[in-house]
């Protein structure tokens, strides 16, 4: 039975992608050889490809939301479009009304309001989605053009394709690298997941953000585990995370020490567990992976 595992963090930069890359490496070399489909759902900071070195097989333009376009030839410059726009997306300049495509939310309120039908909605190409073959299995990833909206939609698309591939080929695991935060892209990425692993940081900020992402997962009914990265930077903070998790009935599955090898592996374009398997961070990540696997395989 196919399972979806998502790696999340709340706060950005806690080491989510480094952990996901190591999981992909460990899965490919272990019992799950040939059983994994990988998805990078952090589409506005898609970094997994820097480690997995994908060979792109298929590229598709991603159609984002629609934006309004005003036909200046028939526009009466009445301004009713600007009056109804709640996104400050219609600007008057030099006697013309213009749409700021970045601010436009695609609601089409102006289209319905225009007395001369001079406004139409046009779909925007907002990025690209890719199907690749990576060193550790098929990778579904995407790049959102800078500043585009709708990353939740692109996240859903990437994940959906990865899921269909896994179903088609009877693969056991979809491994998803999630985005930071708790909003739309996270909700889109976590939806339908069987298990989430939160990579927390033992910092004042990290604890706070971990609690918010745990709240989000609870809200949507996704079970969660927590691991603590750079745990030895502030052991009291790591202990505080473990206490907070225990109080919430959330299982912590290990501490990963601060280890300069992680940055070196990133520079080398490798998963840390492949780059130096005996490094302290690699050993710790491998132990976390074993515990996560046990939870994934445990009958619900």
């Amino acid at each position: 039975m196919m399972k979806q595992l998502i790696v999340l963090s709340g706060k950005g930069g806690t080491g989510k992608t480094s952990v996901t890359a190591a999981f992909a490496h460990l899965a490919a070399g272990g019992r799950l050889t040939g059983q994994v489909v990988i998805a990078d759902a952090d589409v506005d900071a898609a970094n997994l490809e820097l480690v997995l070195q994908p060979r792109v097989l298929e590229t598709q333009p991603f159609q984002g939301g629609q934006v309004a376009v005003i036909d200046q030839d028939t526009c009466l410059v009445c301004g009713s479009c600007a009056d109804v726009c709640r996104f400050d997306a219609i600007i008057e300049r030099d006697g013309q009304y213009l749409v700021d495509p970045i601010a436009c939310d695609g609601c089409a309120a102006c289209v319905y309001q225009c007395p001369t039908e001079s406004i139409r909605m046009e779909p925007q190409i907002a990025g690209k989605s890719y199907v690749s073959e990576s060193r550790y299995g098929p990778l579904y990833h995407a790049n959102l053009d800078p500043g585009q909206e709708n990353s939740g939609k692109l996240v859903t698309l990437v994940k959906q394709r990865a899921r269909l591939r896994a179903l088609d080929e009877d693969r056991e695991l979809v491994l998803v690298d999630g985005p930071p935060g708790i909003g739309c892209p996270v909700i889109a990425a976590a939806s339908g997941a069987d298990l989430a692993l939160i990579v927390a940081e033992p910092t004042a900020a990290g604890v706070h953000d971990m609690q918010r992402v745990l709240g989000t997962l609870r809200h949507f009914g996704v079970p969660a585990l927590v691991c603590i990265n750079k745990a030895d930077i502030y052991p009291e903070g790591a202990a505080a995370i473990e206490t907070s998790c225990r109080a919430d009935g959330v299982v912590t599955v290990g501490r990963i020490p601060f280890d300069a090898t992680v940055a070196s592996a990133m520079v080398a374009g490798e998963a840390v567990t492949a780059f130096r398997p005996e490094a302290p961070a690699s050993l710790a990540v491998a132990a976390v992976w074993e515990r996560v696997l046990a939870f994934l395989e445990a009958p619900a």
Partner: peptide
């Protein structure tokens, strides 16, 4: 916020 999508814009 982090990222490069609508909240950053």
């Amino acid at each position: 916020p982090p990222g490069a999508s609508c909240p950053v814009v």
